[in-house]
Computed example of a mutant assay.
Amino acid sequence: MIRGRVVAAAALLLAAACAPTTHSGSAASSGSTTAPGEVPTPDHVLVVVFENKDAASVVGAPEAPYLTSLAAAGATFTDAHGVTHPSQPNYVALFAGSPLGVVDDSCPHSFEASNLAGQLLAAGRTFVGYSEDLPAAGDTSCRAGRYARKHNPWVDFPALPPEVNQPAGALPADFADLPTVAFLVPNLCNDMHDCGVPAGDAWAKAHLPAYVGWARTHDSLLVVTFDEDEGSRDNLIPTFMVGPMVKPGSTPQRIDHYSVLRTLEDMYGLPPLGEAASRQPISGIWTAG
């Protein structure tokens, strides 16, 4: 468990949620800081990645009451997709714009390619990936208990400083100390890979409300997504975003991991990597700033 994170803030989240609407995805709303076709620049983005579930198994499912309520408070993508099977190449694609030749869950890998963390650091921004049950900061183990390196792509890029690879327990007590972009990856039970939807929903309820409540008054964003579905060709996954810059409601625009990466890059003025260059940034869900 992330220290100091078991905060019962779900009531705050639900009270702040607006009535759902449907977004066309054709254009972003205009405003003082977010003009049509633009994405916002959140102070912080936290990306949480779960595992191997069909979209209908999570959002709206009785086994996932907290995640369903969280999705209802934000923008839910009804046509979101993983890019391949199995797990590992999806994580690499989300982080680097390409699976970089990875086609399985083998370990270890080492890449020299450009990646989101390197881009952020070069631009004077910050990045940290937090992995539950990672034995120690900078650890390069392939497996340790319920930690699996295959779900931790930043460790595969040795040019990155080891400080970007942190245990989940290192998540700062003061969210203002978070990096510009952070990834949070639960262990093999809590990510739903081994223990199913109820375990992941319970983990989310224990660890996410505090950040969500804080983000609403600190111009910050939560992204919840999954690596892949349960093995279908369509690879339809749950994905939603919650924050003060997001209009609650469902959106039918088709997105995938490259779309999410492109959006993160556009938020901070970074050039799109690999297949992210062939995607448009996510639109139609942003409020006027």
Results as ranks from 00 to 15, higher is better:
His81Leu: 00
Ala35Ile: 11
Phe77Thr: 05
Asn115Leu: 08
Cys18Met: 15
Pro89Arg: 04
Leu116Thr: 00
Val58Pro: 03
Gly4Val: 10
Cys18Thr: 15
Leu100Val: 06
Asn90Asp: 04
Ala27Val: 14
Ala27Met: 14
Val45Phe: 00
Glu112Ser: 15
Ala8Phe: 14
Tyr66Trp: 14
Gly101Cys: 02
Pro62Glu: 03
Ala55Thr: 11
His23Ile: 12
Ala28Asn: 12
Asp104Gly: 01
Asp43Glu: 14
Ala56Pro: 12
Thr76Gln: 10
Ala75Trp: 09
Val103Asn: 09
Ser87Pro: 11
Arg5Phe: 11
Gly37Asn: 06
Val59Cys: 08
Ser106Asp: 00
Val47His: 02
Ala28Leu: 11
His23Gln: 13
Gly118Trp: 02
Ser106Lys: 03
Glu51Cys: 08
Asp79Phe: 03
Leu94Asn: 03
Ala56Gly: 14
Gly4Ala: 09
Ala93Val: 10
Phe50Ser: 11
Ala117Gly: 04
Phe77Gly: 01
Glu63Pro: 05
Thr21Arg: 15
Gly37Ile: 08
Pro86Tyr: 04
Ala93Thr: 09
Val92Glu: 04
Gly25Leu: 04
His85Gly: 10
Gly118Lys: 03
Ala56Ile: 12
Leu116Cys: 01
Ala28Trp: 10
Leu94Asp: 02
Leu46Phe: 00
Pro89Phe: 03
Val45Thr: 07
Val103Thr: 14
Ala8Met: 14
Phe77Pro: 01
Thr21Val: 15
Val102Tyr: 02
Leu12Lys: 12
Gly4Leu: 11
Ala17Thr: 09
Ser57Val: 10
Val48Lys: 01
Phe77Lys: 05
Leu116Trp: 02
Gly82His: 06
His85Arg: 08
Gly118Phe: 09
Lys53Pro: 10
Ala16Gln: 13
Ala19Trp: 15
Asn90Cys: 10
Asp43Ile: 11
Leu12Val: 13
Asn90Tyr: 06
Val92Arg: 06
Asp104His: 02
Gly74Val: 01
Ser57Asn: 09
Gly82Gln: 07
Tyr91Ser: 05
Gln88Val: 01
Pro86Val: 07
Gly25Thr: 06
Gly74Glu: 00
Gly82Ser: 09
Asp79Ile: 04
Ala71Val: 04
Ser57Lys: 09
Ala19Ser: 15
Tyr91Arg: 03
Asp104Pro: 02
Ala56Cys: 13
Gly31Met: 04
Asn115Ile: 08
His109Gly: 08
Gly101Thr: 04
Ser30Trp: 13
Pro89Leu: 05
Leu12Met: 14
Pro108Leu: 04
Val58Ser: 00
Ala96Ser: 02
Ser110Arg: 04
Asn115Ser: 07
Leu14His: 15
Gly4Ile: 09
Asn52Lys: 07
Thr78Glu: 01
Glu112Ala: 15
Ala9Leu: 07
Leu120Val: 06
Leu121Tyr: 11
Phe50Ile: 12
Leu100His: 01
Gly4Tyr: 09
Pro89Val: 07
Ala113Asn: 03
Gly101Asn: 04
Thr68Lys: 01
Ala71Gln: 00
Pro42His: 03
Ala28Thr: 14
Pro86Ile: 06
Leu14Val: 15
Ser106Cys: 05
Thr41Val: 05
Ala10Val: 14
Ala9Thr: 09
Phe111Lys: 02
